[in-house]
Write a protein that binds this DNA or RNA. Sequence first.
DNA 1: ATCAAGATTACCT
DNA 2: GGTAATCTTGATA
Length: 204
Amino acid sequence: MNKSDFTDKLSKDFYLADVLTVAKNLLGKTFVKAGSNKILSGKIVEVEAYNGLMDEASHSFNGMTKRNEIMFKQGGLLYVYFTYGMHFCSNIVTGKEGDGCAVLIRGIEPIDGIKQMAKNRYGKTALTGKENINLTNGPAKLTQAFGIGRKDNGIDMTGNEIYILDSKNIHSKKISVSKRIGIKKSVDLPWRFYITDNPFVSGK
DNA sequence: ATCAAGATTACCT
DNA sequence: GGTAATCTTGATA
């Protein structure tokens, strides 16, 4: 057993829990993309839960299709979808096979690889203050910053390419709860969670 | 075969 | 605050 076998990567079990629990517990954790290039990482500061067959707003509500099939697999996979003809968004599948639950990552505070993120977003590395905030303060923005796309749909988050590092849960007093953003069905469900006052929480 | 809508963003006034 | 951009998917015929 070598040194790299000791990691604090979130294990499969973490993702098998209830989607609302996983969503809240993901706040403050470090999202990492290792892959081929430089390491990119950031702190998850905003998420939304999509609760499978219970949830009209979820992609999985009407059952499995070619688009959402990853959502129906066992928790711990990355679900990437394309929308509005131009954007990709990143989700973490939760629960057991067939649940169709996932957590949309809506905001990340960059840690490592900020220059690469800037390049992915703007094609340059010198950014204005506004561009720095806009790097990762929205679901499609952070997905672009991390260079995540169609090819990453279905990646196993317990592998070495894209994963999340464990850390202490954020205290519930620092977590805000609200309605989800940008949906037209089940609009009143309080399934958006974010770290209060963090600047990388998407606008509203 | 056709069509409307979409878990958004950037840019405009 | 308003809306164009842009194209895939899923539903309907």
